[in-house]
Design a protein around this nucleic acid. Structure first.
Lengths: 201, 201
DNA sequence: CACCTTTCTTAAACTAGTTTATTTTTTAGG
DNA sequence: CCTAAAAAATAAACTAGTTTAAGAAAGGTG
């Protein structure tokens, strides 16, 4: 138990924040007050498209799948959010436009949520957090740029191997079907890739 | 001439900043002191991969092409940066890793540059800018997410039409070849798409 | 304004990844 | 521990986009 501990799940989010900025104890209390606990059972939806996203999420337990459906019903997975990950539909949350994403729990999950009003109030009352979110968004941007480039310039097989080495802790928690939807290919083609790799080694 | 004008190109970058935060006159002077003018003639390289990116860029005139080459030499355009656009290789600049991008002037161009040291000093001395860059990165992230999703779930033809309607002011300044490299297809296939659309209408 | 280079088009053969369908394996949960 | 349902594997026919090549149109520089 560290000094001024808030206990699970608040210590988890505070430790995440502490990577980039130091909050004073009273700022920590204030910070925590803006976030609410939430949870979802396996297979339950955390978010469905159509309406405007109410919350941004910080996952403290479990695994969420963030995805959209294309016009012909195909699933495209944007990210898998496990413990200590920030997620949500940033476009819908930011621009207050209808969401295009589904968020579904792949395991029994717990998370913290914040509304847009509270998010803005929080940044006004704790200006230090502007720096935190500046760095968080910048890092996300760097990752997105990398992923976009991979999608454009690498084969499905290369993208598969990069995923395995980048996210080993996620790879063994999800199905082939969901992984295929993340890689942008069909489960059948992923299956071909896997059997090809197995034969090779 | 507005109050406390710094003249071209500094008014341009200050107006861009003013979209999200208000700087006091002395903050404007300080801000401007961190940026240096740069320029490149048509076809000249602003950045070549291999080394660590020294600068981030704010374009004030002309048009820059930001791109990378895949293992077999194919060009992949990340963005076209015209007047009032921020650009650079954020991954290399941020993580101080070797750059993987080329930046080439498509027209005679002018821009402002900042080093990483100055960028960090600037944020320490003008904390209000944390908010500006938080919003800038968040907006970039929203755009990247949208573009990634388009690349995954739309056909080349759909992506072409979205590009035309989203960036009409860029579309008529670049070649088909560069546009194809942005869309992730060959110039030959873009040519096919165009003739198909022409016949249809 | 004329040449030379670069860009754009057209078309045919080709390939990475999809679609559809059937069978086998794994998994959750009563 | 069993069983229904979901996931994974295999295979053949198919499609979006590539590759190669060769000719037509633009465009910048002497």
């Amino acid at each position: 138990m560290e000094a001024h501990s808030q206990g699970y799940p608040y210590d988890m989010i505070l430790n995440n924040i502490a990577r980039f900025v130091d909050l004073a104890d009273e700022e920590k209390d204030l910070f925590v007050s803006f976030w609410k606990k939430g949870s979802a059972k396996r297979k339950e939806y955390v978010l469905e498209p159509g309406g405007i996203t109410k919350y941004e999420y910080f996952v403290t337990k479990g695994c969420l799948k963030v995805y959209s459906l294309d016009p012909s019903g195909g699933e495209h997975v944007n990210m898998f959010a496990i413990e200590d990950y920030w997620t949500g539909d940033l476009a819908s949350f930011t621009l207050q436009q209808p969401s295009t994403y589904f968020i579904k729990a792949l395991e029994d999950s717990e998370f913290l949520t914040i509304t847009k009003d509270n998010f803005e109030r929080m940044l006004r009352e704790i200006p230090k957090l502007e720096r935190f979110y500046r760095i968080l968004y910048r890092n996300s941007l760097v990752n997105y740029i990398k992923r976009t480039n991979e999608g454009i310039s690498l084969t499905a097989e290369e993208r598969y191997e990069i995923f395995l080495s980048t996210y080993p802790q996620i790879a063994n928690r999800i199905t082939q079907k969901d992984l295929a939807a993340y890689l942008g290919i069909t489960p059948e083609f992923l299956s071909m890739i896997r059997s090809k790799i197995t034969k090779r080694s």
